[in-house]
Simulated scan of single mutants.
Amino acid sequence: MKKVLLIDSTPVKQAPYLNIYTSVFDKKRLSWDILTWDKDADGETSYKNHIFTIHRKMHLHGLSKLNDFFHVSVEMRKIISNGQYTHIVVVNTIWALLLIDVLSQMRGHYIIDIRDYKIERKLFVPVFFLKLVSRAFVTVISSNGFRDFLPEDEHIVVSHNISDFCHESREPSLYPGKKEVTIGYVGYVRYNTPNRNLIKRIGGDLSYKLVYYGNVSKYCDFVNDDSLQRNNVYMMGKFENNEKYKIYEGIDIINSLFDSSYASRTLTPNRLYDALLYKKPMIVPAHSYMAKLVKKYQLGLVTDLSENFNIELKSYIDHFDRGNFVRNCNQLLNEVKSEQQNFFKSIEEFVKG
């Protein structure tokens, strides 16, 4: 009997891409479990509704953090051994490397799903990582930007973080000459430096409203910085995913700024799909994979947030071509849908073997 285990240390509620896998497994009437890590509290491993949760509070730095990962990987081995799984999907490189001995015995019966770029360039990691990639049934990437550190291989497929096409919009709310333009960040609020710079550039300019929806990272101090308090900046707090389309009805431009780390520069954030679905242009940082996409499909403003940013932004709005923008959104959206179908086919082939 085939039995599949999905391993991901991201909380399940924050990992909607897992639903894509489980929907295929349910369709094929396969037994499956999810294995995740609760990093906020210590306790015994729990199991409920197909989900194993390892409870171990994670330290933030140094050897203590490494020790946490080691102990969690030991507990993972126990669960894998007891569960007698025939197929494994491992999300993110760190767990593939920590479980390399387990995966080596399952050649062609595991998938590596890369959702973030973290340790792929460190020390001897590439040697072991590329060996794991070569022996996987397929390697799944959430961004074509990740191809920079992967070999050219036909066994690499893209899985886009998009599933809800129900509320797709037909036209943007932005138009040239709009008196008050709302720039919105929707999601987990982070990337401290670029958002500080954005507020410094246009905070206080009542031609714009800057709104932030979502929980705020504890590393994001721009929220509580008195020197950055402006009367056109609004922190809206937590929201439910089914409220997203309503939120976007009140947003004209998406704030998709992020930091300059290599990890961020290679990502395809969920806000790209929001832009395509809800027909909202984006503001993205220069020198990133997203900048290449935005330039190619003319989906928004690429910026380094220089002192001339307010001039760049006003010029973009004044020359915004609604019809051309919608055509470009639909072109890329169709390409995304096609790649998503290839991903589904790969997962179905995976569980056949």
Rank of each mutant, 00 (worst) to 15 (best):
V4H: 07
I7S: 07
D8L: 05
S9M: 11
T10L: 02
Q14E: 04
Q14K: 03
Q14W: 00
A15V: 03
A15G: 04
Y17E: 07
T22P: 01
I34G: 05
I34T: 01
W37L: 04
D40V: 11
D42W: 07
D42Y: 07
G43A: 02
T45H: 01
H50P: 03
I51T: 11
H55V: 06
M58K: 10
L60T: 09
H61P: 03
K65I: 07
F69N: 03
F69T: 00
E75V: 07
E75P: 04
R77F: 02
I80S: 02
I80C: 06
N82W: 13
N82F: 14
Y85A: 00
H87W: 05
V90H: 01
V91H: 12
N92Y: 01
T93E: 04
A96R: 00
A96Q: 06
L99G: 06
I100G: 00
L103N: 02
Q105T: 14
Q105Y: 12
M106V: 03
G108W: 03
I111F: 00
I111N: 02
I111C: 00
I111D: 02
I111T: 01
L123R: 15
V125K: 08
L130N: 12
F137C: 03
V140R: 05
S142D: 05
S143A: 04
D148A: 13
E152Q: 15
E154V: 13
I156W: 04
V158G: 05
N161I: 05
N161G: 03
I162R: 04
D164L: 11
S169E: 15
R170V: 10
P176Q: 10
K179H: 10
T182C: 14
T182V: 15
V186T: 05
Y188I: 08
V189W: 05
V189S: 05
R190W: 08
P194L: 11
R196F: 10
R196H: 11
N197R: 15
G203K: 06
D205F: 14
L206I: 10
S207E: 05
Y208E: 01
V211K: 10
V211H: 07
Y213K: 00
G214I: 01
N215T: 12
V216M: 09
K218S: 08
Y219M: 13
C220T: 15
D221R: 11
V223F: 00
L228E: 04
M235N: 10
M236Q: 06
F239R: 09
E240S: 11
N241H: 13
E243A: 12
Y248A: 08
G250I: 07
G250H: 06
N255M: 06
N255H: 06
L257G: 05
D259P: 08
D259Q: 13
S264R: 15
R265I: 00
T266S: 12
D274T: 09
Y278W: 13
V284F: 03
P285L: 12
Y289H: 12
Y289T: 06
V294Y: 04
V294S: 03
L301H: 06
V302F: 09
F309E: 08
N310H: 12
I311D: 13
L313N: 07
Y316P: 02
D318I: 08
D318R: 13
F325Y: 06
V326Q: 05
N328D: 00
C329H: 09
N330P: 02
L332W: 06
N334F: 14
N334A: 15
E339W: 05
F344P: 01
F344M: 15
K345D: 14
I347T: 02
E348R: 00
K352W: 09
K352L: 08
G353M: 13
